Each structure stands twice: as C-alpha cells, then as structure tokens.
Simulated scan of single mutants.
Amino acid sequence: MFAIIGLAGVFFCVFGGYIIFGGKIGIIIEALPKEVMIIGGSAACTFLIANSTHVIKQSLGDIKRIFGGARFHKKEYMELLALLYQILKTMKTKGVLAIEQHIEKPMESNIFNAYPTIMKDPFTVKFIADYLRMFSIGVDNPHELEALMEQEIEKVKHEGLHSSHAIQAVADAMPALGIVAAVLGVIKTMASITEPPEVLGKLIGGALVGTFLGIFLSYGLCAPIASRLKGIVEEENQFYHVIRAAITAHLGGYAPQVSIEAARKKVPSEYMPDFNELEEALSQIS
C-alpha cells in the first residue's frame, strides 16, 4: 500500500511541481518516446547482459514483492514458535525416534500439518526437517550444527539479494545513460545550428529531457525498488535465525520452554510476542 502511495507521490511531486511552476509538459511528452527508447531500452539490454537467466527471472518476479512486503509477520512467527516447541517437547519426552516419521515425511506429518501457515513455505519445512534429521543421525555438537545452519542461512540471503543487486546496478547506470541521450540530443541540435532560437530552444529542451529522465528513473524508481527488495530479504532471513536459535539451544541441553524463549528473542521487535502471550499459546499445545 505504502509502495503504491510512494510511487504515485514521486510522479505527482516531480511532474506536478514542474507544471505548477510554469513548466511546459508538452516538451517532455514530445521527447519522451525517443528518450525512453534510448535510456530504458539500453538499461534493459545492459540488465540482460549483466545477469544470468536465473537472476533475470528472479528479478522480474521479485519486483511485485515491493507491494506485498515480507512474507513473515507475527502470525507466522507465532506458528513457527509453536511448531518448534511441539517438536522439541516431543523429542524431550519421547526421544528422537518419536519425531523420525515427522522429519522424514513432513508433508504427511500431523505435527507439521497442524501449522498451515508454515506449510505454505516449503523451504522452512525442509530447513527444519533437514537439521533435525542431521541431529537424529548423530550430529549432536551444537556448535557444528549451528555453523552449518548459519552457512545455509547466509547462502539463502545471498541468493535472495541477487534481484536487489541487479536492479541497483541498473539504477547506477541510468544517470550515465541519461547523459548519453542528452549528448545525442545536443549533436542533433548542433546539426540544426542555423535554425531560429525558438527551434533551437525546443531541441535543447528535448535533449535535456534525457538527463532528467535518467536521473529520475534511477533515484525515483529503480534505487528505491532495489532498496526495498534488500530490506524484504533481510527481514525474511530472520525467520530462519529463529529456527537456528531454537534447535541449537535444545542441543545445548535446555528445556523446550527455554529453547523457545531463546528463539523468541530472535524475532524482529515489531512481530515479537511478549513472554506471557507466547506462554499462553504454548500452554494449549498437548
């Protein structure tokens, strides 16, 4: 919602302000098609040159995420903590073998399926199952398992940031591409140097539209999109740190309640349930 308001506000403030202060929008409109072709077209082509097919597809798919934001909010964190608590409690009271069937086939597990919000994210389910499986087959050193989880979490973050980096590279290139368009406009103007001042003025104004458009698209559109995508990836990445904290605390010998409290502290402040709220939710788990 705020992304839509922000984008609309950028266009309104820039073009609306230009018109209000006496600018002639006709010059911009007339020059826009060719400037968009030069700047937008060349920016799109450099994007294709600089990135792999996977990153291109990922970037195009991720742009729409700026309107929806991160996938994980308080509801998802509450379900995650409850799921982890139920798993750790089962391991503590019935032994590791009691959860073997659940981690081998999590999609068929009655424990996992009790938390439909978590089941909507296959990577989270796989992440939990994989590391519990490693524990069940003998990797019981909490430091070793924590290091492995940290590496995978960092890998997921690195791969998630590909879109942000790709779009930021386009944002960095656009002002220079705007100058290219402006220089081409000046070349065209110099070829018409014998024309009267009113004609030359119109040609120079059209050339300057290129510089304006390159800077506007860079700082008013592409850079904010890249920054927002980076923020979303970093926010979602914290979800997996919550899982890491719970599992490593359990491997350290702590009771399920203490392990989940350690995990709760990793939840982003805006979504973190307070101690009593979480305790009440966990007390309903059999």
Rank of each mutant, 00 (worst) to 15 (best):
E279N: 11
G210L: 08
A169L: 08
L81T: 06
L282G: 15
K230S: 14
L177V: 05
L88K: 04
I225S: 01
L203F: 09
E261Y: 07
A223C: 03
G178D: 03
K75S: 09
F275D: 14
S52L: 04
F47Y: 12
F12Y: 08
F67R: 13
F72H: 14
A181P: 01
L251V: 00
G214H: 07
A8V: 12
H102N: 05
I204N: 08
S286I: 07
I225W: 01
D172Q: 15
G253P: 11
G23A: 07
Y131W: 11
C222T: 12
T124Q: 04
V10K: 02
I128C: 08
A166H: 01
S163M: 09
I215P: 04
F67W: 08
I87G: 04
G95S: 10
I38W: 03
S259L: 05
H73P: 01
Q58M: 08
V267K: 00
E154N: 10
P196Q: 13
M107C: 09
D140Q: 15
I118F: 04
L177H: 01
K266R: 13
E108Q: 13
P33Q: 10
C13R: 13
P268Y: 09
D130K: 06
G40D: 00
I38H: 00
H241G: 13
L200K: 13
G16S: 05
A245Q: 02
Q257C: 08
Y18D: 09
D130H: 08
I99C: 11
K230D: 15
L282H: 15
E261S: 07
F21K: 15
H73G: 06
K24N: 15
P142R: 07
A181I: 01
T46F: 11
F15N: 02
F127H: 00
T93Y: 14
V139P: 05
S192E: 12
P175Y: 04
V258T: 07
M134N: 12
E104L: 09
D172R: 11
C13V: 14
I285Q: 05
V180S: 00
C45I: 09
G40H: 03
I63R: 12
T194W: 13
G160Q: 15
A8K: 11
L278K: 08
A223L: 12
N276A: 08
